[in-house]
Design a protein around this nucleic acid. Structure first.
Length: 466
RNA sequence: GCUCCCUUCGUCUAGAGGCCUAGGACACGGCCCUCUCAAGGCUGUAACACCGGUUCGAAUCCGGUAGGGAGCGCCA
């Protein structure tokens, strides 16, 4: 039987980092076993589900590159099917109508709380066949009264629940709409899901779902409950912890591959390996190796990994990403070749693509001002003369390439008996306005002869006058 | 409150009875390299939650305690 996994987010908010990891694990598992990955939107909560959230989730999945083979399926379009199954359950005596009002249930819970008991439905309509004309009934699943349910979880191992701890959950509201735990069961059954991989906040729901599956005459799938991802303070990841939407990571200049690499290492490892390409993950990842304990999200490590991916990816693959970030800085960059050279020279000095774009703006815009402190430090009358000489020689340089520029500038510094820095810093200041840039030869090469000399002259004139 | 889950450096993790004076990575400190900033190399600080038990021997097995998390909804 071929492996079928599913990712089933509810569109009540954006796709967050925890959801993305669940999706990643489902996707990896399906890919690794040559199976199918199904996307399902759990939008039965009409109140809180939004179209915008659905789009956000789809965009996030697309950005991450987690492509699905089937779906997206929407639960709101499957209401007829849920009704049909509820009918079956009712007919076979696995479900019943409960005419309790919300007030009665609230009272029941209050009484139980007062007695220090676990709040649970007491089954008072379980064996009744009469009705209450003034109350629209809900439908409850008739959970077995005794015995136990064993969840053989791939990550947690054998977990046993007593049926006596479980009450009869509502599967259809009084308005007839089905509830979450029931829809999941029907969907997983209909979509022939073989492996349910989800957050371990669902572990407690699992025995109920298994009981329903059994009542429907279906063998339960394999379950794997993933540990949660916590914020830096050890509490559940939330808005307080900064970026939560995966698209926010894209905007901040993180590479999808790096985010995935970071997430796969949360709760899972393969020896001492830290860097994983997507292919590595598909080849090496196995849910059985996932840890049981929750882990804390660490932006520092994500950032480091991001730079690792920037440095190891083919430069050409980063060109479109750099262009996108430059455009967000208001810069329209056309030349692919030039962008590739920028990537090559900048990637070891930027941790994110956004940072690379910001650091590279000077290639497209002449400096509007110069770092004053640096000018005071690096520009003196002697240096000015030296820079002027460099300008003259550069103008004559036949081959405008980094090696040739390197040779020229080094040679000049050597001939004048000054350190390279003495000459390189003022030139750097003149062409980019600050003290930080790629090596001066590469910087000038990318900038081009005309632009380099023009900036040099402009700066020299300015500094010479003052 | 009840049920279930979890517990190795600040963080992510290795570890499945002797290989552990507990390894790697991020972060942090130092040194080297160096035209700036980085990247890179070397290096330092830093952990088995606690208490019992089993065993010749326990981070690893068992029991308990403490701490954290989740679920207990006509939410998903």
């Amino acid at each position: 039987m071929s492996v079928r996994t599913r990712f089933a987010p509810s569109p009540t908010g954006f796709l967050h980092i925890g959801g993305l990891r669940t999706a990643l694990f489902c996707w990896l598992y399906a890919r690794r076993h040559g199976g199918q990955f199904v996307l399902r939107i759990e939008d039965t909560d009409l109140e809180r589900s939004t179209e915008a959230a659905i789009q956000q989730i789809l965009d996030g999945m697309k950005w991450a590159g987690l492509d699905h083979d089937e779906g997206p399926f929407y639960q709101t379009r499957r209401f007829d099917r849920y009704k049909e199954v509820i009918g079956q359950l009712l007919a076979k005596g696995h479900a019943y109508r409960c005419y309790c009002t919300k007030e009665e249930l609230a009272q029941l819970r209050a009484d139980q709380a007062a007695r220090g008991e676990k709040p649970r439905y007491d089954g008072r309509w379980r064996e009744r066949t009469d009705a209450r004309p003034d109350v629209a009934p809900v439908i409850r699943f008739k959970n077995p009264l005794d015995g136990e349910v064993v969840v053989d979880d791939v990550v947690h191992g054998r977990v046993v629940f007593q049926n006596s701890e479980l009450d009869d959950l509502i599967i259809a509201r009084s308005d007839g709409t089905p509830t979450y735990n029931f829809c999941v069961v029907v969907d997983d059954m209909d979509m022939r899901i073989t492996h349910v991989i989800r957050g371990d906040d669902h572990l407690n729901n699992t025995p109920r779902q298994m009981n329903m599956l059994i009542a429907l005459g279906v063998a339960p799938p394999v379950y794997a409950h993933l540990p949660m991802i916590l914020g830096p303070d050890g509490t559940k990841l939330s808005k307080r912890h900064g970026a939560v939407s995966v698209l926010q990571y894209r905007d901040e200049g993180f590479l999808a591959e790096a985010v995935l690499n970071y997430l796969v290492r949360l709760g899972w490892s393969h020896g001492d390996q830290e860097y994983f390409s997507i292919e590595d993950m598909v080849r090496l990842f196995d849910i059985a190796d996932v840890n049981k304990s929750a882990s804390v999200f660490d932006v520092n490590k994500l950032t480091w990994l991001n730079q690792q991916h920037m440095m190891r990816s083919p430069a050409a693959s980063l060109v479109p990403v750099l262009r996108w970030h430059l455009s967000r800085e208001g810069i329209a960059a056309e030349n692919d070749m030039q962008l590739e050279r920028i990537v090559l020279s900048q990637r070891e000095r930027a941790k994110t693509m956004r940072e690379m774009a910001a650091n590279s703006a000077f290639f497209f815009r002449a400096p509007a001002a110069y770092d004053e402190k640096a000018v005071r430090k690096h520009v003196t009358p002697e240096v000015l003369a030296l820079v002027a000489e460099a300008g003259r020689q550069l103008a004559q340089l036949e081959d405008w390439s980094a090696p040739a520029i390197h040779e020229l500038i080094n040679g000049l510094a050597l001939a004048r008996g000054v350190s390279l820095g003495k000459l390189a810093q003022p030139i750097r200041l003149a062409v980019c306005g600050g003290t930080v840039s790629p090596p001066i030869d590469a910087t000038l090469e990318i900038l081009g002869r005309e632009e380099s000399l023009s900036r040099l002259h402009k700066a020299a004139g300015l500094w010479g006058a003052s």
